[in-house]
Structure formats: C-alpha cells, structure tokens
Amino acid sequence: MTSFCGTTLCLDRSDINTDEIIPARYLTEIEKTAMGPHLMEDLELEGFDPKQDLKEIGVLVARRNFGCGSSREHAPWALEANGIHVVIAESFARIFYQNMFNCGMLAITLNTKQIDRLFQAAAVSPLHVAVDVDTGKIQATAGPDTWTIPFALTGFEKALVQAGGWVEYADQNY
C-alpha cells in the first residue's frame, strides 16, 4: 500500500513557477537537501510567510498550472526536504508534474469544484488529507468535516510511485 498524509497548505494562486518554488540562486547547491531552507522564499502571496507557514506541512494545494517555468527538479527536492510529498492542483506544468512522479512523489489533479472545497475548508480550520494511491482516494478532514475525493492516476504514474521513482522503474525494465 502506498499512501501519503499530512496537513495542507493552500496557496491561492495560479501559475506558481519553479523560480518561486526555489530561486535560481540556490541552483549552485548539489545536495538535494540543501534546497530545504529556501523553499518558496521568493513567493509573494498575501498572508504567506515561508518561514512560518511551511512548518509541519505535508501537502500543498494550489490553483492552475502549478510548477511552470524551469525544468529544475530542485523544486520537488525542496518540497521533499520539507516533508511535502504531495501537491494537489487544478493543473500542472508538464516537467514539474513528471519530476514529482520521477522522484516517487505525487502530483494530483482535481477539478475546480474539488479544489474550491479544499480552499474553503482550510480557510476555517486546519485541513488534513490522507492520500491512498492504491484506491485512488483522498480522505480530507477539516474540523468536524470529513469527505472523500476520488482522483485518477495513470497506470504508469502509479507504477513510478510504487517503484520509488523513474530510475528504479527504468532499471528494472530497460
């Protein structure tokens, strides 16, 4: 069984780019974990403080076209270094999306209504989600509310997450 869970941070913006997730000035680091302290330090979003708001977060929720721009896998590494293994959004940029699965992490696409509900719930009380890759279900909990959201992954995406990433998968298959 492959599952991820955590408290969510909702970032109410579309087109959050990889320069905002991890600025280029940190691309001189070679160790993946060195990205950790700099996650989203350039993201200017009302009420968002990267130093405070990323603590104890396991899941990000955003709007459309998350991860656009540079191909830098430093973006997923910066998330991973902070214990964030899941990003949920209305849509993703291609390279970021693939990088998440290649690292054995999850990028989940939900529709506007489902994303809206997550934002609304998180505005009232802390939102916690548990993601089950095998059943394709997200269990969301916010205060007294609990609801289930189905999501779709392709067979290949599931296989990557289950193998632990693309290197492992390719090594077994090619």
């Binding site: 191909s71 693939q98 990088n99 690292c103 990433g165 693309w166 290197v167 090594d171």
Partner: peptide
Amino acid sequence: AGVGTTDLAVGILK
C-alpha cells in the same frame, strides 16, 4: 524537450 534531473539520469544511463 526539457526534463528534470531524474529523466536526465535515466537518459544518460539507458
């Protein structure tokens, strides 16, 4: 196509 470092690693290897 631009890719991430993992795709690059597999490209180099395989």
